[in-house]
């Protein structure tokens, strides 16, 4: 059976928020080392991968591998009903058709139990090859969210250019154009590692959706390499990460 306790429901809320705009249903695979989720969006342009290792949980036990088919909108409703500082324990039997969520207030004066019906999802898993990225940029997640929002006002496409001098985001549309440049800072809030310069074009709508994960982390890592999908990674405390992959736009 599975038993996993998050110290704060707020973290689970943030994780669900980071997933639910991009995928509606997905399988959460639980093993003794932690929880994993991998799903493509409906149009198969992007992929989200979540990894939560046992270290982050207040309590974690998983005797046998169990896959939980979740409807994320339903999970969001349940999680929303709890207070952010409640502890939450997820429990599922070995061949579960439901997931039990038990919320417990700080002083244990209030407990709330919910049973969520699980879905039988036939989900493919994709193999993500190890990639040596040509450019790796780390910046405050709030800065990235702001740039994605500002860019999407101008165009559907966002061009990302990365050189040793910095990273540039550009959008060009009917209204005009926008260019935002960031350079490596001595303060260390922006770091740019470049093996070779790269310029790629991406759908801004997806980049914007990825920034739903902003509350999970102060930092975001953006990795680019020729002819492979963009990787946008948000670390999640001691648990692990949420990663978003987005296929680049190619010339027609």
């Amino acid at each position: 059976m599975l038993e996993a306790r998050f110290g704060e429901t707020l973290l689970l809320k943030k994780i669900v928020d980071a997933l639910k705009e991009i995928i509606s249903q997905s399988t959460l695979d639980c093993t003794e080392t932690g929880m994993q989720l991998q799903s493509m969006d409906n149009s198969h342009v992007s992929l989200v991968a979540l990894s939560l290792q046992t270290e982050g949980f207040e309590k974690y036990r998983c005797d046998r591998n169990v896959s939980l088919g979740l409807d994320l909108k339903s999970l969001a409703k349940v999680v929303k009903s709890a207070s952010g500082d409640d502890a939450v324990t997820l429990t599922a039997a070995d061949k579960a058709d439901k997931l039990l969520l038990s919320f417990e207030s700080d002083n244990k004066s209030r407990t709330a139990d919910y049973e969520l019906k699980l879905l039988n999802l036939d989900q493919d898993h994709l193999g993500i090859p190890e990639t040596n990225y040509a450019c790796i940029v780390q910046m405050p997640s709030s800065e990235f969210a702001r740039i994605c929002r500002d860019m999407s006002m101008f165009s559907e496409s966002v061009v990302i250019s990365c050189t040793k001098q910095g990273i540039k985001f550009s959008a060009n549309g009917d209204m005009g154009s926008a260019n935002i440049k960031l350079s490596d800072t001595s303060k260390g809030d922006i770091t740019i590692d470049v093996d070779e310069p790269i310029t790629q074009s991406f759908a801004g709508r997806y980049l914007n959706t990825f920034t739903r994960a902003t509350p999970l982390s102060d930092r975001v890592k953006i990795c680019l390499a020729p002819d492979v999908p963009l990787l946008v990674e948000y670390p999640i405390e001691d648990y692990g990460y949420i990663r978003y992959y987005l296929a680049p736009k190619v010339d027609e």
């Binding site: 198969h44 992007s46 992929l47 493919d124 994709l126 296929a247 736009k249 190619v250 027609e252």
Partner: peptide, 12 residues
């Protein structure tokens, strides 16, 4: 043109 992610990552 937007490529599918499955053209980069293959099914296991």
């Amino acid at each position: 043109m937007q490529q599918s992610i499955t053209s980069y990552f293959k099914q296991k």
